[in-house]
Each structure stands twice: as structure tokens, then as C-alpha cells.
């Protein structure tokens, strides 16, 4: 049997020093605390939280809940930007807490508040009743009398080009960030909002749908589509690339006769 001699300098060191764990730094997490049932004013409570470079804002809030104060109210579920539950204002801008890393905020002080333009339930949890009811008003389903499956019926055929016309807008997770950033929502409580309008476009642009006239009637009202002034804030904050501002302008194209 041949013997291989490993040169001295190439010998593998069998007892290497373990790679040093990156040291966690500490940030100050400021959480807005308010309990409407106690009629108390909102106040900020500060917590020192250790973070790594991959720590998300939601993880810091959960650290506070686990180790420092269980009473902090926050809504969350999937932790991967799919459920749309953990929307909140982080350092002044609406974002998903599970999708925002502390490191990208480039600040040692992180302030979390409930989203604007939504009723506060408690602390960081807000009421989505208006968002969901507006969403339902937009008839978020395919309207087509032939859509009932009968013996002998076939599936609707769509080309990839047909699909591209609305696919982007079907990625909406109903997190409400767009409605929170919208300057019209800030002052007009009856405004449909970018989320609802984008969904109205999503179904209107779907070539299987026959409910265009119904939906255009719903959005063509005093607190409807004409209240949007294309400030683009909704698209700026959307975590899924839905681009509600584009959907609204395209939907307006139907009403103005530029689109068929």
C-alpha cells in the first residue's frame, strides 16, 4: 500500500479555533403603547434588545414579549411576508415588521408605531375592518355566467400575455401598508384607498371576467378613483411589488376611454 506524506505546512490543523460568533449589538426599541379601552394617551416605552445583522423588527418585538414585557400587543403570523399581518410604522414609514431587518434601518434606535389611517385596537395592532369591507365591495372574484362548471364545460384559456395584465396585482397580501402611506387616506375617511382600487383593476383586467361595468361604477364616485392624485406613496411602500399606483392609473384609463 502506498503511503502519502502530507507536507508539514499543509497538515490540517485538527484543533482550529472555532470561528468567532458575531457579537450581538444592542439597539433601543421604542414601542408605541396605547390601550383605547382605557382611554389612555399613546406613550412610548423603550427596551434594549440584542440584535444580529439578520434580526428583523418582528423578532425584536417578540424578544420584548418573551423576555421583557408580555403585554405588548402585536399581530403576526407567517414571519415571511406572506400573510400581511405585521404591518406597522417603523421609523416613520409603513413596513412589514417580519420583512424589515434592523440592519437596513441604519439606526440604533428603532421606533415602532401602529399604522396610520387604521383604527387602533391596542399598541401595534390595528383594525382591518374598513380595508376588508372595501376589498369586498370591489367584487374580488371572476364575474362570468359561464364560470359554473357544468358537464361538458371547458376551462378558460389564457395566454401568458393575458395573465401578465393582472398577475402582478393578484400578489396583494392585504397588509394595508399602501392605505397607510396614501396622502388621500390621511384626510378622507371614505376614500376607497389604493388597495381596493388595485384589486378593482386586477379583476377588470382579467379577460375571463365580465364585471368591468359593475366595478367601474363602484370606483367612479366622489370618494373613489378620482381622489387619487398619483403621489406614488402606495407603490413606494408595497412589500410585494404590486404597484397600486400603476393599477389605479390603468383603471382610470378605462374610465377615460383610453383602454377598452
Amino acid at each position: 500500500m502506498a503511503t502519502v506524506t502530507v507536507p508539514e505546512e499543509k497538515k490540517i490543523d485538527e484543533s482550529p479555533a472555532a470561528p468567532a460568533e458575531p457579537k450581538p449589538t444592542t439597539i433601543t426599541l421604542r414601542i408605541s403603547r396605547v390601550n383605547p379601552s382605557e382611554n389612555a394617551e399613546a406613550k412610548f416605552e423603550e427596551f434594549k434588545v440584542p440584535v444580529q445583522k439578520w434580526t428583523t423588527v418582528l423578532e425584536t418585538i417578540l424578544h420584548v414579549k418573551e423576555k421583557l414585557d408580555h403585554s405588548v400587543a402585536v399581530r403576526y403570523s407567517c414571519r415571511q411576508a406572506s400573510c400581511g399581518s405585521c404591518g406597522m410604522k417603523i421609523n416613520g414609514k409603513p413596513r412589514l415588521a417580519c420583512y424589515t431587518k434592523i440592519s437596513e434601518l441604519e439606526s440604533n434606535v428603532v421606533t415602532v408605531e401602529p399604522m396610520n389611517n387604521f383604527q387602533i385596537i391596542r399598541d401595534l395592532a390595528v383594525n382591518f375592518e374598513q380595508l376588508f369591507s372595501t376589498h369586498k365591495k370591489m367584487k374580488p372574484f371572476i364575474i362570468n355566467e359561464e364560470s359554473e362548471v357544468q358537464p361538458g364545460t371547458k376551462e378558460f384559456i389564457q395566454t401568458p400575455q393575458d395573465l401578465e395584465k393582472f398577475l402582478q396585482f393578484s400578489y396583494c397580501i392585504k397588509c394595508g401598508l399602501c392605505n397607510s402611506a396614501c396622502p388621500t387616506m390621511a384626510t378622507d375617511k371614505s376614500f376607497v384607498g389604493p388597495q381596493g382600487l388595485a384589486q378593482a383593476y386586477r379583476y377588470t383586467a382579467d379577460n375571463r371576467d365580465k364585471g368591468k361595468e359593475d366595478r367601474l361604477k363602484i370606483v367612479d364616485q366622489s370618494h373613489g378613483i378620482w381622489r387619487c392624485h398619483f403621489a406614488g406613496s402606495c407603490s413606494n411602500v408595497c412589500p410585494k411589488g404590486v404597484d397600486p399606483a400603476m393599477a389605479i392609473q390603468l383603471l382610470r384609463g378605462y374610465l377615460l376611454g383610453f383602454r377598452k
Partner: peptide
């Protein structure tokens, strides 16, 4: 009127809005 706001398509990370 829907002009100059880009075309709908498959959003790609990091999701820069075409509008």
C-alpha cells in the same frame, strides 16, 4: 390616463415599482 406608468408584469425582487 394610464400612459407612462409602465406595463404590468412579473414583479422581481427588490420590487421597484414601474409606475
Amino acid at each position: 390616463g394610464g400612459k407612462g406608468v409602465g406595463k404590468p408584469g412579473q414583479p422581481e425582487y427588490p420590487y421597484r415599482a414601474s409606475s
